[in-house]
């Protein structure tokens, strides 16, 4: 197998004095969809933020596209080809839908998805181009947050809780989008609370607890580990 596209080795991260990641190890290969599972506070969101360089101090290793990124600034990390969709969606209220969509600069030389293609994928956005970003419905905002990073040509997508709080029909649409992206060769890391959403999408799963990876499963191992998953995901 080729070298992983994303590899974390003994990744530690802090927010100020608070030590949130305690040696995370994981790897994601090109074209894979990988989900981070775990309870709230297990360190899944912090893992994505630490990959982007958005936590405070970090130590250990973050290797992206074969480059060590542990001491890179967030804008350099993004320009390696990483698209980040934050948990709170991060739609800018002072920007129109169109401005939100066009905000991230292209990170790949051969460009990303064309705007026309994005409108095929998310027709609602086209009609709302001039509305302020935060006047969109929750589902539309989530589509905008995903569409925005597809335009840049990023090959690795970090998607934090994209199904959270959305109507089932929109969650289904997002599921179709993820499958479509996978078939186009995108590499995707999902953080999901909605186990049923991610169970059908991901190739592999990392279960996190206490700021560490505690289990690693392939999709075909899910059924046999239902009791363990219950223990780490149940409340």
């Amino acid at each position: 197998m080729n070298a992983p596209l994303l590899e974390l080795k003994n990744l530690n991260a802090w927010y100020g004095e608070s030590h949130v990641l305690h040696g995370v190890n994981l790897e994601v290969h090109k074209g894979e969809v990988v989900t981070l599972l775990g309870r709230n506070g297990a360190g899944r969101t912090s893992t994505l933020r630490a990959i982007m360089g958005l936590t405070g101090k970090r130590s250990g290793s973050v290797s992206l596209f074969g480059q060590e990124a542990i001491s890179m600034a967030p804008h350099h990390i993004a320009r390696l080809g990483v698209g980040f969709c934050p948990e709170e969606r991060g739609i800018f209220a002072t920007l129109t839908t169109g401005e939100n969509l066009m905000l991230p600069p292209r990170v790949a030389k051969n460009g990303g998805m064309s705007v026309a293609h994005i409108f095929d994928m998310f027709p609602n956005l086209k009609e709302r181009l001039n509305s302020p970003g935060t006047k969109l419905s929750g589902g539309e905002q989530q589509m905008l947050a995903v569409a925005r990073i597809l335009r840049t040509g990023a090959q690795l997508l970090l998607l934090d809780e994209i199904s959270e709080g959305l109507a089932p029909v929109i969650v289904q649409t997002l599921g179709r989008v993820i499958r479509d992206l996978k078939s186009r060769g995108f590499t995707i890391v999902l953080v999901e609370q909605n186990f049923r959403f991610s169970a059908g999408l991901a190739d592999r799963f990392y279960v996190m607890d206490g700021g560490k990876v505690v289990h690693h499963l392939r999709q075909d191992e899910l059924a046999a580990n239902a009791t363990m998953l219950q223990e780490f995901l149940g409340v």
């Binding site: 982007m52 360089g53 958005l54 600034a73 967030p74 804008h75 990390i77 993004a78 320009r79 980040f84 934050p86 991060g90 800018f92 209220a93 002072t94 920007l95 401005e99 905000l103 991230p104 600069p105 990170v107 925005r148 990073i149 840049t152």
Partner: peptide
């Protein structure tokens, strides 16, 4: 405007 609203996220988009 984006950086004024949320500087760290704007930077995470490669700006």
């Amino acid at each position: 405007r984006a950086a004024t609203e949320n500087a760290s996220l704007t930077q995470a988009f490669g700006i």
